[in-house]
Amino acid sequence: MLPHGGCCERRSSHSANSSHSNTLYQCAIWEVGQGLSRPRPGHHKTARMLEEFAPLALVTILAALQQAYFALQVIHARRRFHIPPPAVSGNEDFERVYRAQLNSSEYYPLFLSVFWIAGVSFSQALAVCVGVLYLYSRYKYFIGYSESALQRLRPLYFGATMLWILIGLASLGVLSQLCSRYLGYNPMTAARSYVEL
């Protein structure tokens, strides 16, 4: 709370005093302290937004940890099969681990982009469910490919299906938002209204 009389009043009352500059300094320090103690503009809005998208952020962290795990498995395979960098061939078992990690990292940016767009523009709950299934399929793909090239196929197809679902959800969400903004008609809202009837 502002001191009694306020800084301006205090300044005028001490204008004839030799400690005028000291009073101004104390007043400035007080005002800085008050500014630091106040919430920043938009702070509450940012906090609410972070809470709202916490499930999407959690799946994103899991995806990043999964990529880190795959990379560590490649390092372990290099030591196990004696393949020093920068070599990426020379042992079939190592090459399968390396290819599994490389393939997963190639799809990682695509997954993140459509996952977030689907979660923000269509349905966060649906995007999170499909995203978790995709990460599970990627794990099974990595483990299967590390053991045999044939064992990668089923998780690969399942993961591709989950990715296409995310692409579809993201596309529907963006198109609905564009229609709502430029045409004044949101097909998703109309569809929900029709289902409720």
Rank of each mutant, 00 (worst) to 15 (best):
P3W: 08
P3T: 02
P3L: 11
P3H: 09
C7Q: 13
E9A: 09
R10Q: 11
S19R: 13
N22L: 11
E31P: 02
P41E: 01
G42D: 00
T46N: 08
A47S: 04
R48P: 00
P55S: 02
L56Q: 03
L58P: 02
I61V: 13
L62S: 10
A63C: 06
L65M: 13
L65G: 08
Y69V: 06
I75W: 08
R78S: 07
F81P: 01
P84N: 04
P84T: 02
P84C: 01
G90T: 03
N91P: 04
E92N: 10
E92C: 06
R96K: 15
R99F: 09
L102P: 03
S105K: 15
Y108A: 15
S113H: 11
V114E: 03
V114R: 12
W116H: 15
S121C: 09
S123A: 05
S123P: 00
Q124L: 12
V128P: 01
V128W: 02
C129S: 11
V130K: 05
V132A: 15
R138F: 00
Y139F: 14
E147R: 08
E147Y: 10
E147C: 11
L150K: 12
R152H: 07
L156C: 03
G159C: 00
A170I: 07
G173D: 05
G184F: 08
M188C: 08
A191P: 03
R192E: 06
V195T: 07
E196H: 06
E196I: 06
